[in-house]
Protein backbone atom coordinates (compact mmCIF):
# COMPACT_ATOMS: atom_id res chain seq x y z
CA UNK A 1 0.00 0.00 0.00
CA UNK A 2 2.79 2.37 0.98
CA UNK A 3 4.62 1.35 -2.16
CA UNK A 4 1.56 2.13 -4.25
CA UNK A 5 1.11 5.53 -2.62
CA UNK A 6 4.77 6.28 -3.07
CA UNK A 7 4.75 5.52 -6.79
CA UNK A 8 1.49 7.43 -7.17
CA UNK A 9 2.97 10.44 -5.40
CA UNK A 10 6.10 10.16 -7.48
CA UNK A 11 4.22 10.23 -10.77
CA UNK A 12 2.06 13.09 -9.52
CA UNK A 13 5.15 15.14 -8.67
CA UNK A 14 6.66 14.32 -12.06
CA UNK A 15 3.43 15.32 -13.76
CA UNK A 16 3.35 18.74 -12.12
CA UNK A 17 7.08 19.20 -12.69
CA UNK A 18 6.67 18.66 -16.42
CA UNK A 19 3.67 21.01 -16.51
CA UNK A 20 5.87 23.65 -14.91
CA UNK A 21 8.67 22.92 -17.37
CA UNK A 22 6.30 23.23 -20.34
CA UNK A 23 4.92 26.46 -18.86
CA UNK A 24 8.35 28.04 -18.52
CA UNK A 25 9.33 26.83 -21.98
CA UNK A 26 6.14 28.34 -23.44
CA UNK A 27 6.73 31.69 -21.74
CA UNK A 28 10.30 31.81 -23.03
CA UNK A 29 9.15 30.89 -26.52
CA UNK A 30 6.47 33.62 -26.50
CA UNK A 31 8.87 36.21 -25.08
CA UNK A 32 11.54 35.51 -27.68
CA UNK A 33 9.00 35.32 -30.52
CA UNK A 34 7.84 38.85 -29.66
CA UNK A 35 11.29 40.43 -29.18
CA UNK A 36 13.96 41.24 -31.76
CA UNK A 37 16.09 40.12 -33.45
CA UNK A 38 13.60 38.54 -35.83
CA UNK A 39 14.58 36.28 -38.69
CA UNK A 40 12.14 37.12 -41.54
CA UNK A 41 13.74 34.61 -43.93
CA UNK A 42 13.34 31.78 -41.46
CA UNK A 43 9.74 32.78 -40.68
CA UNK A 44 8.94 32.80 -44.39
CA UNK A 45 10.57 29.41 -44.87
CA UNK A 46 8.53 27.95 -42.01
CA UNK A 47 5.34 29.56 -43.33
CA UNK A 48 5.87 27.79 -46.64
CA UNK A 49 6.71 24.53 -44.87
CA UNK A 50 3.76 24.66 -42.46
CA UNK A 51 1.19 26.37 -44.70
CA UNK A 52 1.84 25.63 -48.34
CA UNK A 53 3.05 22.05 -48.04
CA UNK A 54 0.16 21.14 -45.72
CA UNK A 55 -2.40 22.25 -48.29
CA UNK A 56 -2.86 18.84 -50.00
CA UNK A 57 -3.51 16.87 -46.79
CA UNK A 58 -5.75 19.56 -45.35
CA UNK A 59 -7.69 19.92 -48.60
CA UNK A 60 -8.24 16.17 -48.92
CA UNK A 61 -9.39 15.83 -45.31
CA UNK A 62 -11.74 18.79 -45.72
CA UNK A 63 -13.38 17.67 -48.94
CA UNK A 64 -14.10 14.17 -47.64
CA UNK A 65 -15.42 15.52 -44.33
CA UNK A 66 -17.78 17.88 -46.16
CA UNK A 67 -19.00 15.04 -48.35
CA UNK A 68 -19.52 12.73 -45.38
CA UNK A 69 -21.50 15.30 -43.42
CA UNK A 70 -23.80 15.85 -46.40
CA UNK A 71 -24.29 12.10 -46.84
CA UNK A 72 -24.83 11.37 -43.15
CA UNK A 73 -27.25 14.22 -42.61
CA UNK A 74 -29.25 13.33 -45.73
CA UNK A 75 -30.17 10.05 -44.06
CA UNK A 76 -31.19 11.91 -40.89
CA UNK A 77 -33.37 14.73 -42.36
CA UNK A 78 -35.84 13.14 -44.69
CA UNK A 79 -38.29 16.07 -44.67
CA UNK A 80 -37.27 19.50 -45.92
CA UNK A 81 -33.71 18.29 -45.91
CA UNK A 82 -32.27 20.74 -48.36
CA UNK A 83 -32.01 23.66 -45.98
CA UNK A 84 -31.05 21.49 -43.03
CA UNK A 85 -28.22 19.77 -44.89
CA UNK A 86 -26.64 23.02 -46.08
CA UNK A 87 -26.96 24.28 -42.52
CA UNK A 88 -25.33 21.19 -40.97
CA UNK A 89 -22.48 21.23 -43.49
CA UNK A 90 -21.67 24.92 -42.93
CA UNK A 91 -21.89 24.73 -39.15
CA UNK A 92 -20.08 21.43 -38.87
CA UNK A 93 -17.22 22.47 -41.11
CA UNK A 94 -16.61 26.05 -39.97
CA UNK A 95 -17.12 25.45 -36.26
CA UNK A 96 -15.59 22.05 -35.71
CA UNK A 97 -14.36 19.80 -38.47
CA UNK A 98 -12.40 22.43 -40.41
CA UNK A 99 -10.18 23.55 -37.53
CA UNK A 100 -10.00 20.22 -35.68
CA UNK A 101 -9.20 18.01 -38.65
CA UNK A 102 -6.79 20.53 -40.18
CA UNK A 103 -5.20 20.86 -36.74
CA UNK A 104 -4.83 17.12 -36.28
CA UNK A 105 -3.37 16.65 -39.75
CA UNK A 106 -0.88 19.46 -39.19
CA UNK A 107 -0.06 18.08 -35.73
CA UNK A 108 0.95 14.83 -37.38
CA UNK A 109 2.86 16.46 -40.20
CA UNK A 110 4.45 19.53 -38.62
CA UNK A 111 4.55 18.59 -34.93
CA UNK A 112 6.53 15.49 -35.85
CA UNK A 113 8.90 17.26 -38.21
CA UNK A 114 9.63 20.09 -35.74
CA UNK A 115 10.33 17.62 -32.93
CA UNK A 116 12.55 15.47 -35.15
CA UNK A 117 14.49 18.43 -36.54
CA UNK A 118 15.08 20.23 -33.25
CA UNK A 119 15.65 16.90 -31.46
CA UNK A 120 18.35 15.91 -33.94
CA UNK A 121 19.95 19.32 -33.53
CA UNK A 122 19.91 18.81 -29.75
CA UNK A 123 21.50 15.35 -29.73
CA UNK A 124 24.12 16.31 -32.34
CA UNK A 125 25.11 19.41 -30.28
CA UNK A 126 23.93 21.82 -32.98
CA UNK A 127 21.86 23.71 -30.39
CA UNK A 128 24.97 24.02 -28.17
CA UNK A 129 26.84 25.26 -31.24
CA UNK A 130 24.16 27.92 -31.81
CA UNK A 131 24.61 29.18 -28.26
CA UNK A 132 28.38 29.37 -28.57
CA UNK A 133 27.86 31.40 -31.75
CA UNK A 134 25.84 33.88 -29.65
CA UNK A 135 22.55 32.89 -31.24
CA UNK A 136 19.56 32.22 -29.06
CA UNK A 137 17.90 28.97 -30.16
CA UNK A 138 14.56 30.31 -28.93
CA UNK A 139 14.80 33.18 -31.40
CA UNK A 140 16.50 31.29 -34.21
CA UNK A 141 14.75 27.91 -34.13
CA UNK A 142 11.60 28.08 -32.05
CA UNK A 143 10.31 31.63 -32.64
CA UNK A 144 10.02 31.37 -36.44
CA UNK A 145 8.16 28.06 -36.16
CA UNK A 146 5.70 29.33 -33.56
CA UNK A 147 5.04 32.56 -35.48
CA UNK A 148 4.56 30.64 -38.73
CA UNK A 149 2.23 28.14 -37.03
CA UNK A 150 0.02 30.83 -35.50
CA UNK A 151 -0.25 32.68 -38.84
CA UNK A 152 -0.61 29.72 -41.20
CA UNK A 153 -3.09 27.51 -39.35
CA UNK A 154 -5.95 30.07 -39.66
CA UNK A 155 -5.21 30.43 -43.38
CA UNK A 156 -5.24 26.66 -43.78
CA UNK A 157 -8.57 26.52 -41.96
CA UNK A 158 -10.09 29.13 -44.29
CA UNK A 159 -9.07 26.90 -47.20
CA UNK A 160 -10.44 23.85 -45.37
CA UNK A 161 -13.75 25.65 -44.74
CA UNK A 162 -14.18 26.53 -48.41
CA UNK A 163 -13.20 23.08 -49.68
CA UNK A 164 -15.26 21.28 -47.03
CA UNK A 165 -18.38 23.26 -47.90
CA UNK A 166 -17.68 22.53 -51.54
CA UNK A 167 -17.52 18.81 -50.71
CA UNK A 168 -21.00 19.08 -49.18
CA UNK A 169 -22.19 20.93 -52.28
CA UNK A 170 -20.86 18.18 -54.57
CA UNK A 171 -22.75 15.45 -52.70
CA UNK A 172 -25.90 17.56 -52.34
CA UNK A 173 -26.14 18.40 -56.03
CA UNK A 174 -24.70 15.33 -57.75
CA UNK A 175 -25.75 12.55 -55.41
CA UNK A 176 -28.82 13.85 -53.62
CA UNK A 177 -30.11 15.78 -56.64
CA UNK A 178 -30.66 19.17 -54.91
CA UNK A 179 -30.92 22.36 -56.93
CA UNK A 180 -27.44 23.96 -56.97
CA UNK A 181 -28.74 27.55 -56.86
CA UNK A 182 -30.94 27.04 -53.86
CA UNK A 183 -28.27 24.97 -52.10
CA UNK A 184 -25.78 27.83 -52.49
CA UNK A 185 -28.41 30.29 -51.26
CA UNK A 186 -29.07 28.07 -48.25
CA UNK A 187 -25.35 27.82 -47.60
CA UNK A 188 -25.11 31.63 -47.55
CA UNK A 189 -28.02 32.06 -45.17
CA UNK A 190 -26.63 29.35 -42.86
CA UNK A 191 -23.24 31.02 -42.72
CA UNK A 192 -22.73 32.75 -39.37
CA UNK A 193 -19.86 35.02 -38.59
CA UNK A 194 -19.28 33.92 -34.99
CA UNK A 195 -19.00 30.27 -36.02
CA UNK A 196 -16.44 31.12 -38.69
CA UNK A 197 -14.43 33.34 -36.34
CA UNK A 198 -14.47 30.72 -33.59
CA UNK A 199 -12.93 28.29 -36.07
CA UNK A 200 -10.20 30.78 -37.00
CA UNK A 201 -9.36 31.54 -33.37
CA UNK A 202 -9.22 27.81 -32.65
CA UNK A 203 -6.87 27.37 -35.59
CA UNK A 204 -4.46 30.02 -34.29
CA UNK A 205 -4.46 28.36 -30.86
CA UNK A 206 -3.91 24.94 -32.44
CA UNK A 207 -1.01 26.31 -34.50
CA UNK A 208 0.54 27.57 -31.28
CA UNK A 209 0.00 24.25 -29.45
CA UNK A 210 1.41 22.16 -32.30
CA UNK A 211 4.58 24.19 -32.80
CA UNK A 212 5.23 24.59 -29.06
CA UNK A 213 4.80 20.87 -28.40
CA UNK A 214 7.06 19.96 -31.32
CA UNK A 215 9.71 22.42 -30.20
CA UNK A 216 9.46 21.47 -26.51
CA UNK A 217 9.88 17.75 -27.04
CA UNK A 218 12.64 18.29 -29.59
CA UNK A 219 14.48 20.79 -27.38
CA UNK A 220 14.61 18.37 -24.45
CA UNK A 221 15.32 15.27 -26.54
CA UNK A 222 18.22 13.18 -25.34
CA UNK A 223 19.94 9.90 -26.02
CA UNK A 224 20.52 9.69 -29.75
CA UNK A 225 18.15 8.47 -32.42
CA UNK A 226 15.92 6.62 -29.99
CA UNK A 227 15.44 9.80 -27.98
CA UNK A 228 14.54 11.72 -31.12
CA UNK A 229 11.99 9.04 -32.06
CA UNK A 230 10.49 9.24 -28.58
CA UNK A 231 10.37 13.04 -28.78
CA UNK A 232 8.56 12.87 -32.12
CA UNK A 233 5.93 10.48 -30.77
CA UNK A 234 5.43 12.56 -27.62
CA UNK A 235 5.12 15.74 -29.67
CA UNK A 236 2.35 14.37 -31.87
CA UNK A 237 0.43 12.66 -29.05
CA UNK A 238 0.60 15.62 -26.65
CA UNK A 239 -0.23 18.14 -29.39
CA UNK A 240 -3.27 16.09 -30.47
CA UNK A 241 -4.61 15.67 -26.94
CA UNK A 242 -4.05 19.32 -25.99
CA UNK A 243 -5.64 20.35 -29.28
CA UNK A 244 -8.83 18.42 -28.49
CA UNK A 245 -8.85 19.73 -24.92
CA UNK A 246 -8.50 23.34 -26.07
CA UNK A 247 -11.10 22.75 -28.76
CA UNK A 248 -13.55 21.90 -26.00
CA UNK A 249 -12.53 24.86 -23.83
CA UNK A 250 -12.75 27.34 -26.72
CA UNK A 251 -16.11 25.98 -27.83
CA UNK A 252 -17.38 26.38 -24.28
CA UNK A 253 -16.13 29.98 -24.21
CA UNK A 254 -17.50 30.97 -27.62
CA UNK A 255 -20.90 29.33 -27.38
CA UNK A 256 -21.60 29.52 -23.65
CA UNK A 257 -25.28 30.25 -23.10
Amino acid sequence: MILLMRSLGHSLVNFFASIGKIGIFTLRAVFHSCNPPFYPNLILKQMIEIGFYSLPVVALTAIFSGMVIALQSSSGFSLGGEKAIANVVVWGITRELGPVLAGLMVAGRIGASIAAEIGTMRVSEQIDALETLSTNPFKFLIGPRVIAGVIMLPLLVIVADIIGIMGGFIIATFDLGFNPDSYIRNTWTSFEFIGFISGIVKAAVFGFIITIMGAYHGYYAKGGSQGVGQATTNAVVSASILLLLFNFILTAIFFAQ
Binding site: E117, T120, M121, S124, E125, Q126, D128, A129, L130, E131, T132, L133, S134, T135, N136
Partner: peptide, 29 residues
Amino acid sequence: MLFNTRFGVLFQGGALFDSLTIWENIAFG
Protein backbone atom coordinates in the same frame (compact mmCIF):
# COMPACT_ATOMS: atom_id res chain seq x y z
CA MET B 1 25.22 35.22 -25.20
CA LEU B 2 27.29 38.38 -25.57
CA PHE B 3 30.09 36.84 -23.57
CA ASN B 4 30.19 33.86 -25.88
CA THR B 5 31.58 35.96 -28.72
CA ARG B 6 34.97 35.32 -27.06
CA PHE B 7 34.69 31.61 -27.72
CA GLY B 8 35.22 29.43 -30.74
CA VAL B 9 34.20 25.86 -30.20
CA LEU B 10 35.00 22.76 -32.22
CA PHE B 11 32.42 20.20 -31.13
CA GLN B 12 33.12 16.51 -30.91
CA GLY B 13 30.75 15.48 -33.72
CA GLY B 14 31.33 18.72 -35.62
CA ALA B 15 27.78 19.91 -34.82
CA LEU B 16 27.55 21.56 -38.23
CA PHE B 17 24.12 22.98 -39.06
CA ASP B 18 22.89 20.46 -41.57
CA SER B 19 20.26 22.76 -43.06
CA LEU B 20 22.94 25.28 -44.05
CA THR B 21 25.63 25.06 -46.72
CA ILE B 22 29.34 24.86 -45.88
CA TRP B 23 30.00 28.56 -46.37
CA GLU B 24 26.86 29.51 -44.40
CA ASN B 25 28.09 27.30 -41.56
CA ILE B 26 31.50 28.94 -41.53
CA ALA B 27 30.08 32.43 -41.91
CA PHE B 28 27.36 31.89 -39.28
CA GLY B 29 29.24 33.67 -36.51
